[in-house]
Simulated assay, not measured.
Amino acid sequence: MKLVSGAFLSVSLLAGFLAAASAHADDAASNAPAAAPACEVPDYFLSGDVALPKVAEAVKAGGPLNILVVGSRSSAINAGAPEAAAYPGQMLTALKEKLPAIEVNLSVEIQAKKTAEEVAPGLAKLVESKKPTLVIWQTGTVDAVRAVDPDDFRNAVDAGVVALREAGVDAVLVNPQYSPRTESMISPSAYLDNMRVVAQEQEVPLFDRFALMQKWSEDGAFDLFAPVHGAELAKQVHGCLGRALSQFIIASAHPKPAQEN
């Protein structure tokens, strides 16, 4: 029990550093896209094998493209920090740059400390309220920390994806962050594998945040082993994730410029 509690504290700190550290950064600097030239995204992360037809339709029609991010603390913006500081805001900035003729809107729904089973039943109601074109569902970390039965986790993610499809929206799954400092306390592999299974069976795109951050860490782009993560690192990781996610959405939607319609 002490091990799980310690893991929860460590993962909570990791999940919070990307959002919390940004609150201490200079607002003017945070409003600009974070500079992280070393965080290349290999093509195999952006294959776009599974389509986002609703996103493609919205782009073809000239918008609007409404995106709802359902996530945990790592997708939050702390009080006093600009929206552009966290990865959803960075994603929004990048999408607006890539689709200048399209109105792109973003809303973020924080489901702190909730498992997939606790979040899934409310997804349809969120869609009804927010009316998104695309729902980006970030999940898995809390389940891993709480050692939720992997089969129960898979069933919950599957039910959530089905609910989103029945609500008439596109969905993208986002798996947990990579943290080399917490892997000795919790094992995310079963949850990562089950998210891949659901993504394949339900034919929804999976943005592999874990593998991408692991690659950046192994390549030396970011020192994720450091016991203290500062505001500048938070900005860089958020910026890289946001831009990579925007590329992933574009690749999955396969949108064409308006003049080609």
Rank of each mutant, 00 (worst) to 15 (best):
A7W: 07
G122D: 03
V135Q: 09
G242H: 06
L52V: 10
P188L: 10
A19T: 05
A38T: 13
A51V: 03
I136A: 02
P64F: 01
A25E: 01
P88C: 07
V41I: 02
Q236D: 13
I77Q: 10
P42H: 05
V237N: 04
V41F: 04
S179Q: 01
D151V: 08
A19I: 02
P42D: 12
A258M: 08
S12Q: 15
D149S: 05
A34H: 11
P33V: 04
F222L: 13
R181E: 08
P188G: 06
V119H: 04
R243S: 10
G242R: 04
S179M: 06
A35I: 12
A7K: 02
P53N: 01
N105F: 11
L9T: 13
A84N: 11
Q138L: 10
Y44D: 14
S12L: 04
Q247C: 05
A81N: 00
E218D: 14
Q247E: 11
R243G: 08
V59A: 01
A38K: 15
K130A: 15
L9I: 13
L99I: 04
V157E: 03
F45T: 03
F225I: 07
V197A: 06
V50H: 10
L206H: 07
P37M: 00
P227G: 07
G140A: 12
P53Y: 01
Y44F: 11
V69T: 08
A29W: 08
E97D: 15
A23I: 07
M91D: 06
A251N: 03
D219L: 06
A112P: 03
A101T: 14
T141M: 13
K131Y: 10
P180F: 05
L106V: 05
I250P: 01
A25Y: 07
A58H: 00
P188Q: 14
L13K: 11
P132D: 02
E97T: 14
A21E: 01
G242S: 00
D219I: 09
A258E: 04
P227R: 06
A94E: 06
S189T: 13
F8S: 09
Q177P: 02
A94N: 12
F45M: 02
D149V: 05
K256Q: 09
A19C: 01
A51G: 10
S72Q: 14
E103L: 00
N194K: 14
D152H: 11
Q90L: 13
P37H: 06
A116F: 12
I67G: 10
D43C: 08
S184W: 06
H24I: 14
N31E: 15
P100Q: 02
P42C: 04
Y44R: 15
Q247T: 04
M1K: 10
V69D: 00
G48C: 03
A25R: 08
M195V: 05
V11S: 12
